[in-house]
């Protein structure tokens, strides 16, 4: 039995009310584990999670339970995340009865209101259904209603749309976005889909092998990535405007987090890797205001992608000028 020792390494990411933080990376790199560790659903082996001035990682289970009022999570698979033996209304009522001390009637009314808010048609009639009577998208709406029913200050959404149809995905994301604006809840959005984070987030953390590889504001990250891994991820997003050709993919697989090689964990798959990458763990380099990258050649990569961006920009401008002319 190996108990994996994750050493998350986030340099003081501040999330302000109403902001959204994206957490991106390939599967198996520790995004979900980080999300669950913040909520203490997986026990962190070290580190701190400061939330409203309290260190969540060091609270007792009892204290942590009280914090959960302000700290909610939506899970990846709505099909299995709701209790199949319990009516939807009852599962929603549990939240408000527990944290807000509502009576049964109050809680029921609130549950119906929440179901209406997340767009369940005919909410009052359907509140007493069981989860299996709902479709996947509906169940995810119920999960969102449940998570938001005590107006939490932080919502962690762990790949909330991966298990859903593409058309439903957009609806759910739109819903999260809208509710976030209405309530001022901050969101941590965990996903492997760069397209999703681009439109939703203010900041992005890129994770690889249980480490933060890059952190930056969303715009900045997409414009000038300062890490070869991020660049690889961005290149592997299919571009509908591009000419047909093979899709880019980062060679190899993410490493086994329990047995990381010495040096940079990404070195075996990295185009830019040199001898030093296989020997030494890379530094976390500050590239710009709120922009850090974990790479021996962070500045070089950053400079290169910035110049590429400038080139693209000027090219776009010339095309525009040409069209105008």
């Amino acid at each position: 039995m190996t108990i994996l020792d994750f050493r998350f390494w986030i340099e003081t990411i501040d999330i302000y009310p109403g902001e959204t933080l994206g957490l991106v990376g390939e599967s198996g790199c520790g995004k979900s584990t980080l999300g669950r560790a913040i909520l203490r659903l997986t026990e962190p082996t070290g580190g701190q999670v400061l939330f409203r001035g309290k260190d969540l990682a060091h609270l007792s289970q009892r204290e942590m339970r009280d914090e959960r009022k302000h700290l909610q999570m939506i899970f990846q698979d709505p099909m299995t995340s709701l209790n199949p033996f319990m009516r939807i209304s009852k599962q929603l009522m549990e939240m408000t009865e527990l944290h807000l001390g509502y009576t049964k009637d109050q809680a029921y009314e609130h549950a119906v209101k929440m179901l209406e808010t997340v767009g369940i048609p005919d909410a009052r009639a359907r509140a007493d259904s069981y989860p299996h009577e709902f479709s996947g998208g509906m169940r995810q709406r119920v999960m969102i209603a449940m998570a938001l029913s005590c107006e939490p200050e932080l919502l962690i959404a762990d790949e909330p749309t991966t298990a859903l149809d593409v058309t439903i995905q957009a609806q759910i994301l739109e819903l999260i976005k809208k509710l976030k604006q209405d309530t001022g809840t901050s969101v941590i959005l965990i996903t492997h889909d760069l397209g999703v984070v681009a439109g939703m987030t203010d900041h992005i953390l890129v994770m690889y092998a249980g480490k933060i590889f890059e952190q930056a504001q969303t715009r900045e990250l997409f414009a000038c990535p300062g890490n070869p891994y991020t660049k690889g991820l961005l290149r592997s997003v299919p571009d509908p405007t591009a000419e047909q050709g093979a899709l880019y993919q980062i060679p190899g697989l993410p490493p086994d987090v329990a047995h990381l090689p010495p040096g940079c964990p990404f070195a075996p798959r990295c185009e830019r890797a040199e001898e030093i990458c296989r020997q030494e763990f890379p530094p976390f380099v500050k590239l710009n205001e709120e922009h850090y990258s974990l790479c021996h050649f962070a500045e070089e990569v950053y400079a290169k992608s910035c110049s590429e961006r400038d080139a693209r920009k000027s090219m776009n401008q010339t095309t525009v000028q040409e069209e105008n002319a």
């Binding site: 390494w9 986030i10 009310p17 530094p283 500050k286």
Partner: peptide, 22 residues
């Protein structure tokens, strides 16, 4: 409310050198 913010600050401990800018 304005100043209430949360920090996710998990520091590296153990064998690896603490290579943080801070």
């Amino acid at each position: 409310m304005k100043d209430e913010r949360q920090e996710s600050d998990a520091r590296q401990t153990g064998t690896e050198p603490a290579l943080t800018p801070l």
